[in-house]
Design a protein around this nucleic acid. Sequence first.
DNA 1: CACTATTACCCACTATTACCCACTAAACCC
DNA 2: GGGTTTAGTGGGTAATAGTGGGTAATAGTG
Lengths: 143, 143
Amino acid sequence: MFQGEFSNNMDDKGRVSIPASFRDVLKTCHAEPQLIITRTPHSRCLVAYPRREWKRLQKRISATPPSEQLRAFKRIVISSAQEYAPDRQGRVLLSPALRDYASLSRTVQFAGAGETFEIWDKSSWDKQLEADLMLAKNFELGL
Amino acid sequence: MFQGEFSNNMDDKGRVSIPASFRDVLKTCHAEPQLIITRTPHSRCLVAYPRREWKRLQKRISATPPSEQLRAFKRIVISSAQEYAPDRQGRVLLSPALRDYASLSRTVQFAGAGETFEIWDKSSWDKQLEADLMLAKNFELGL
DNA sequence: CACTATTACCCACTATTACCCACTAAACCC
DNA sequence: GGGTTTAGTGGGTAATAGTGGGTAATAGTG
């Protein structure tokens, strides 16, 4: 389970450390931590999948009847998907396309989301959170 | 059952003692006291769950039909959730994100809330209490 | 093919965190 | 009241996480 928030800095080469606790979760899937990072159509952020979760998403996609909407979805999600293996320091070098999509500059926010985790530009994340607070304020779920 | 109010001081490293009586309650759930601390959308404070309660919340979330409101709720609550195990002195080191959200400075207020307990900045708590007095003044529950 | 830009891989440094020990003050108990 | 226990607090130190940068390999370009 990916949970918790972390923010790390991207260096001049475009590398960011994956938070150690997320790396640990990835290790429970494979000895060599592997992950697939891609765009998400819902927000201007990236989503990271462990290999197994990614397979599940692929299966779900291929079980869906074709449509223009699905093709759009695939172009966004599948086409930009890239496989990463963190270096010995636990960092990955994100492709310019991905960096660009989420407008990552320096401070990168990692947010656990259960089976996956999200990668945001810090300032986008802060804005999103403000908006979310308004939305969720009156949402009762037995807290 | 978590009941009662306590206020402890956060030290320079960002550690706060969990009140002993709350720790005792946690021990009744697991030998090693474990707790999940996260934000709540309702107020600028944190909520602590014993593991079992947290699982229940997760179940309730996954049984709720997806909506924008739910996604907002998840970003607030799930993403920031962190698991803690108090050190030998009964303290936890709260993450900067959580500290920030509840604007915890030095004096931290703990308030029992039955199955969970809340963590406030003392001065926010005092203000909230004032407001609550007004709200609950005419609330009859057969006392 | 030569040249340049990019990437992978390694090492070194710093900041942060986990873990341990020690002290003080309050509560408790004969 | 004096001794004992327990809660809360402060701080040192070893391990870990994160960051910066160098160099060799690789890919891309004219």
